[in-house]
């Protein structure tokens, strides 16, 4: 299903970034991105390790709202 929740950049590293989504923090590579990234940007992450796309903050927040709605429909894990 290839679901990917946008992650917010918390801090830049030498070749990557520390990102956060739903309170979970990940170290990800930025090597596949073509555009510059700054703290506060939103990224799509693949395989929990690689940023593959930067998206606009308003779009990221809309997607997060959708995922909030999806989570409400899920049985508790």
């Amino acid at each position: 299903m290839c679901i990917a929740i946008p992650a917010r950049v918390v801090e830049l590293r030498e070749t990557g970034a520390l990102v956060e989504r739903y309170g979970e923090r990940l170290e990800v590579s930025l090597l596949l991105l073509e555009e510059p990234v700054a703290p506060g940007d939103y990224l799509i992450i693949q395989a929990r390790a690689f940023a593959v796309e930067k998206i606009a903050p308003e779009e990221a927040l809309e997607i997060q709202r959708l995922f909030d709605a999806i989570i409400e429909t899920m049985p508790s894990v």
Binding site: C2, I3, A4, I44, Q46, V52, E62, L66
Partner: peptide, 14 residues
């Protein structure tokens, strides 16, 4: 329009 955003890693197929 929402499908490729929800499923961003296979958004075209979705």
């Amino acid at each position: 329009a929402l499908l490729p955003r929800l499923f961003s890693l296979c958004g075209v197929a979705q």
